[in-house]
Computed example of a mutant assay.
Amino acid sequence: MSLFGRIFLLNTAVLCAATALLLFAPITVSTPVLSNELLVLVLGLIAVLIADAALLRVGLAPVKRLMRTMTSVDLLRRGPRPVAEGPGDVAELITTFNDMLDRLEAARDFSAARALSVQEAERRRVAQELHDEVGQSLTAVLLGLKRVSDQVPEPARTELAAVQETTRTTLDEIRRIARHLRPGVLEELGLTSALKDLVAEFAELAAHSGVAVRGRFEPGPDQLPDDVELVVYRVAQEALTNAVRHAGAERVTLTLRTADDGIELRVRDDGRGMGTAEEGAGMTGMRERALLVGATLTVDSAPGSGTEVRLWFPLEDTGEHR
């Protein structure tokens, strides 16, 4: 039965009951209406409205459930679909809503995959140019400064040495940025070695601010798909960046653990927590990356209790991720 027919029949039943009550009840209405008769009519009308409201609430309950689901849907967090149950039109509406969510998620995955692919390609291009063009140019500058410093008097030689040191520091920073953009160690030595190198890099950068960065690593699977390793690495990179720069933490710990059914990455800090702050572009990017490979990303945070980012990738779905 359609939703219209269901509501029509419910209202018809209420009105028929009210009509039968007026026909067979020992009630008369005077002209003009007496006060006791008016009271009976008002009470009868209230009873009819209450019965009608109760029946409509029952009839529209599936629609209310669907509305609650609509308000809680987040395309970055996959959740269970509402069950297509209820009258014919309601079940069809729920089925159409589920189909719409499937289409939206497929379109989101496709567009996010293209965007992230373009982003990684641009990262590789910039890293290559930094290494080949800027790095080589600064190396040539260093060699030129060294030749000049051997031919000038001592006072100028001291100033040239300071310039050499600044140039050398700049060259090291450019190489660090290039590694950050394109993790060559991930391609050459695998995920665990790349994460160890990442932790060491952040530990060195955060040492001057009093933040201790530590890593705990368990033996992982021999080989993961390249896109899965890249997602785990990028999530770890973004989570460490947030913890070191924004959390106000004293200790940050990265843990890579492998279970029988999946691989887990955790980045935990003892900072001030996210509180009521909205998730930024970095967190959104992590969620998009996780969804692309069928992983689950959760963020647990409370004011004053730190933040924990957890990425879980089921190993049994290694060949099934998108």
Rank of each mutant, 00 (worst) to 15 (best):
I7Q: 13
L9R: 13
N11G: 14
T12L: 15
T12V: 06
A13Q: 09
A13L: 07
A17Y: 03
A20C: 07
A20S: 08
L22R: 07
L23Y: 09
P26R: 13
S30T: 09
T31K: 00
P32T: 03
N36C: 04
N36F: 01
N36K: 02
E37V: 04
E37P: 13
E37A: 06
L39M: 12
L41S: 08
L41E: 05
L43K: 05
L45S: 10
V48N: 11
V48C: 15
I50H: 04
A51L: 10
L55G: 15
V58L: 15
A61K: 10
V63M: 11
K64Y: 09
M67I: 15
T71L: 14
T71V: 10
L75I: 01
L75A: 02
R78H: 04
R78F: 01
V83M: 04
V83W: 06
V83A: 09
P87V: 09
P87A: 09
A91D: 12
E92L: 01
L93V: 10
L93W: 12
T96K: 11
L101M: 12
R103G: 02
A107P: 08
A113T: 11
A113M: 11
R114K: 14
L116T: 11
S117I: 03
V118I: 08
Q119F: 03
R124Y: 01
R124I: 01
R125Y: 08
R125W: 05
A127N: 08
Q128L: 03
D132M: 02
D132E: 13
V134L: 15
G135I: 02
Q136S: 14
S137C: 03
T139L: 11
T139I: 00
A140I: 03
L142F: 01
G144M: 05
V148F: 15
S149D: 00
S149H: 07
V152D: 12
R157Y: 02
R157Q: 03
Q164C: 00
E165F: 00
T167S: 09
R168T: 03
L171G: 14
E173T: 10
I174M: 09
R182W: 02
R182T: 01
P183M: 10
G184K: 13
V185M: 07
E187H: 15
L189F: 08
A194G: 11
A194L: 08
K196V: 12
K196A: 14
V199Y: 03
E201Q: 04
F202V: 10
F202R: 14
L205I: 13
H208G: 04
G210A: 06
V213M: 06
E218A: 07
P221S: 15
P225G: 04
V228C: 07
V232C: 09
R234L: 10
V235I: 15
A236S: 01
E238R: 06
L240G: 08
N242S: 02
R245W: 12
H246N: 11
G248H: 11
G248A: 00
E250H: 14
L254T: 12
D261V: 02
L265D: 14
D270L: 08
R272L: 03
T284F: 06
G285M: 13
R289S: 01
A290F: 02
A290P: 08
L291C: 06
L292H: 04
L292C: 03
A295P: 07
T296Y: 04
T298A: 00
V299Q: 11
D300W: 03
D300Q: 13
S301I: 07
G304I: 06
P314F: 11
L315P: 10
D317C: 01
E320Y: 02
